[in-house]
Computed example of a mutant assay.
Amino acid sequence: MKIISSPLELKEHLKNIKLSVGFVPTMGALHEGHISLIKKAKEQNEMVVVSIFLNPTQFLKGEDLEKYPKKDEADKKICELSGVDVLFFPNSCDIYGVDEVSILSPKVRGYVLEGQSRPGHFNGVLTVVMKLLNIVNPTRAYFGKKDAQQLNLISLMAKQLFMSVEIVPVDTVREKDGLALSSRNAYLSKDERVEALKISSSLRLSSAMVSKGVVDAKEIRAAMREVLAPLEIFYVEILDREFNRLERVEIGNTVILVEVKVATTRLLDNIWL
């Protein structure tokens, strides 16, 4: 596995390669969810590039940039054992300059759900993803479905800016008890982790209600909120795949999304129906 920190060096390394390239952008603190993205990239491409970059522009003032989990050596070993060909490990000064050009998220889709409580967050996400995609120029790029709004906005950016990369969604990986894997799970105490299980429980309830013929979105949201109590709820929403609010669940076109705060930790999850 080759480790490169310079964007120009990576572009030079990749420019004459005639292989299909799968790209997995991450912020580090890798877990089984990231490994599933790498596996999918290896299945579908001849070469795999992973980036580890803790992007400062997607963190708002007072958020957890400084305490975000960092496991650099462990992450390198995980990438090596997973068969990654190139690990891109830049510093912030490699990615950002002075008086930056930036990508703005959509005025509606970028400022609802997570974007409502974190205004400007998705500007940072889209800007860094655009930079990374331009550096790597992959055939396909892989993103987890757990961050459904992020996935939707990145897919929209690729489509509207006529980018040649294929954005590939990958299913959420969970612990045996149902908790969706997240680097921020490391913040949770034992008791907080038990509380966090209310998230997946609420989503299982919504799926069970739909399987029994309950498709009224208002009724499902209310039942989910009862399960989530007394957690601080940022949103419980039922949307179509284009992120429009639904009054009734449409099988094959619905995402049910939750974001809550467990103690001081924001956690989000969803299911696709």
Rank of each mutant, 00 (worst) to 15 (best):
P7L: 02
L8P: 02
K15V: 08
N16F: 08
V21G: 04
V21E: 05
T26D: 03
M27A: 00
A29L: 05
L30Y: 03
H31I: 02
E32Q: 13
I38V: 14
K42D: 00
K42C: 05
E43K: 13
Q44L: 15
E46P: 07
M47F: 15
V50M: 02
F53N: 10
T57A: 07
G62Y: 07
E63D: 03
E63Y: 01
E66I: 03
A74F: 12
K77D: 12
S82I: 00
S82N: 01
G83L: 05
F88G: 03
N91L: 07
S92M: 01
I95L: 05
D99Y: 00
E100Q: 10
S102L: 02
L104T: 15
S105F: 01
P106I: 11
K107I: 10
V108P: 02
G115M: 02
G115V: 02
Q116A: 00
R118W: 00
G120E: 09
G120M: 05
H121L: 10
N123W: 03
G124S: 06
V125L: 01
L126Y: 04
T127G: 03
K131M: 08
V136W: 05
P138Y: 03
T139N: 03
R140Q: 14
F143L: 10
K145Y: 12
D147G: 13
A148R: 11
Q150K: 11
N152V: 01
L153H: 06
L153D: 07
F162H: 08
V168I: 15
V168T: 13
V168N: 08
D171W: 10
T172V: 14
V173M: 14
R174M: 12
E175I: 11
D177M: 12
L181N: 10
S182P: 11
N185P: 09
N185V: 09
R193L: 10
L197H: 12
L197Q: 14
I199L: 15
S201Q: 15
L203M: 12
L203Q: 13
L205S: 13
S206A: 15
A208G: 10
S211W: 12
V214P: 13
A217T: 09
K218H: 00
K218F: 03
K218V: 11
K218R: 14
A222L: 14
R225L: 05
L228Y: 12
E232W: 08
I233A: 09
E237R: 08
I238A: 13
L239G: 06
V249H: 12
E250W: 00
G252L: 11
G252D: 12
T254A: 13
E259H: 02
E259M: 11
V260F: 04
V262D: 05
I271R: 13
L273M: 15
